[in-house]
Amino acid sequence: MNLLDINYMLELVPILLRYLPLTLGMAAAGMVLALMLSAGLAVIRVLRIPGLNAATMLFISFFRGTPLLVQLFLFYYGLPQVMSFLTTIDGITATIMGLTLHFSAYMAESIRAAIVGVDRSQTEAALSIGMTNGQLMRRIVLPQATRVAVPTLMNYFIDMIKATSLAFTLGVTELMGATQKEASGSFMYFESFVVVACIYWAIVELLAWFQRRLENRFNEAYRR
């Protein structure tokens, strides 16, 4: 008996790859939006802006404290029962929104930690030569914080790519949804899931390679 039907797997690859742009597109859109949102949240937390700080902490607490799947169901199926205009949001938009809100809660804390982690002497030195607060942030703190935050933020992006596999529960046929449907038609579960695992893995490896290059660039100034 054949362990794996290689021919079936080879046939499946191009079919599944048609859904890769959607998977990556949702993750990329989610990442861009989450970066913006989380940067804002991190700044609120670092500066402890009154009122907003408490709201941000509640936001982070909720979106970090509940599973992404629960959040997706809540926004896609739950809320529209109360607010019917929400049904105009399609599955793709809802997935991107869910990814954005969920991951920005985590990312805000990473970014905050990176900003806070920049040594106090750096701030003092900058202020001593007469930099304004804006210059201090732009020229001194943020470049150093970015270098620290990049590895964890890349981690979240990788996680986000894989989290798009939940979108099939919202009726979005992405990579995983397409695989499940093909597997149920052929009953070649092992083959199908091996193929899809390899596709995800290859994408993540590609990103890891890109991350190493990015980190090398950021580390140039620190090399001795």
Partner: peptide, 12 residues
């Protein structure tokens, strides 16, 4: 789309 033979997918 995953309940053979009622609704399933074959080659997309």
């Amino acid at each position: 789309g995953s309940y053979f033979p009622f609704t399933y997918v074959e080659k997309d």
